[in-house]
Each structure stands twice: as C-alpha cells, then as structure tokens.
Amino acid sequence: MQILFAVIALGGVGAFFGLLLGLAARFFAVPTDSRIEAIREALPGANCGACAYAGCNQYAEAIIEERAPLNGCIPGGAMTAEAIAAIMGEEVDAVEPVVAAVFCRGDQRHARDLFTYHGILDCDYAQQFHGGFKACPDGCLGLGNCVRACPFEAISMGPRGLPLVDQSACTGCGLCAEACPRDIIRLVPQGDQGHLVWCSSQQRGKTVTRSCEVGCTGCRACVRACPQEAISMEGYLAVIDLQKCDDCGLCVEKCRFGSILPRRESAAPAAAESEAASA
C-alpha cells in the first residue's frame, strides 16, 4: 500500500510540475540564439558558477557575445572547451609556429641614456617624457610592458634591462609585440636557424653611433657581403630574410657594430650575464 502511495505521490508531483513546466515553456517561450542552446548542451549544466557567471546559460550567452573565454568552464575541462570551440567555429589554423624576438641589443652597457627617468615603470608612460630616456629613439626602454603583456610568462626582464624570450614557453601570440610602444618585438619563425640584425633603429648612422654601440648604422657592409642576397635595406636598417639566410656568418664578420648575430647565440650572452649576475 505504501509503495503505491509513494508511486502516486512521486508521480503526482512529477506530473504536476511536468505539466506546469510544459505549459510555461509553451506560453513563456523566448526566442534565443540557437548557438546558445548548442553551447548550453555542451556545458555540464551543473550551474556551479565556477566560470564566474550566474549559470551555464549566462556563460553561454557571454560566449556568444564574446565576453567570455571558451575555456571558462572548469568542471567541463578541455573536452567542453573543444566542443564550444567547434560550435563557435573558432578553429586554430595550422600555421608555421612563430616566436617573439626582441630586436634591440642596446642594453644598459651598450646604449646611452639621455637622462634618468623616475616614475611609473611603464614604457608607454616613460616615453611621454622627452620621448623616452634612451638616446636612441627606437631602442628598448626595458620597463617591461612586454613582460606584463605575456600571459604565458615567456618573457622576463634580463639583468641589463633587455627582455629575454623563453622560446619554449612562447606561443607566438604577439601580445608582447602589440604592447611594445617602439615596435621592437617582432614575430619570427621558431627555431634558432639563421642570422638576424638585432636592431630596430631607423636613425642615420651618425645618430646611431652617438647613442648606441651595437646599433645598425645602415652602412650596407652586410648587404654587400651576403652571398645569398638575403639582406636588404629598410631605410637605414638592414633586414635579413630568414628564408634565404644559410647561416654562413659572413655578415657577422663584416658588421663593425655587432648588430648581427646568429640566432642561436643571440640569447646566449644575456643568459650568461644573468648567471654571472646571480652568482
């Protein structure tokens, strides 16, 4: 008898609410983006709030409105993130992997300062004072906007005020390049093949030598020396095409200013210095 009651009671409650909800859904229906439905389906639906939104619905809406990251659902994990990405049609194209590189070697030893800056340690804001404290208007200020911009902790500030990129951690997202007010950081193909001119100066040779010991003066010695014709001039700055460069190293010998270095060595002196500094 009790079992019967139980079935009836439970069934009754279920039926009552089922009916009510069915009616409500019919009469109070609100049209929604079909993708919201799809994303909500993909979400665990636990409404746990771990994504910082009020519930799975709100999170789904936030994704559609591009206010929320695709991987915000903690309980769902990577599987859910992939599913959402598929719905949103955001697939990462297969591209050649790139990494950030800092095109300036003018550290505190090599490059001259015009004055001492004291204030907010931010490249943008420091540049507002007389165009920046470095004598070279294209040289790295070393106040670390790129370091702060990197979400992967792939850039750190070296011991002499030049940022160092950790290639293994860099994803090539380019946020650091955007953050640099002087456009010193550019994206280059991953790996350590080839040589590069580690300078961004657009100044005439005389101006460069006055402000920096390792700046590219635009003397063209490297352009003439390169058997691969991989080096060209962009204004007063030599630029090496990594596709053509065969790592022969002739340009390094010709460069009187030390602006050109093979990529595999470019990070080495800085690393050695940081070791020396910590020792």
Partner: peptide, 9 residues
C-alpha cells in the same frame, strides 16, 4: 654617469 639629470613627473 652621474651627470645625467633626473626626469620625473
């Protein structure tokens, strides 16, 4: 390098 002047806000 102490001859450099200091600039600040």
């Amino acid at each position: 390098m102490n001859d450099r002047l200091v600039i600040s806000s």
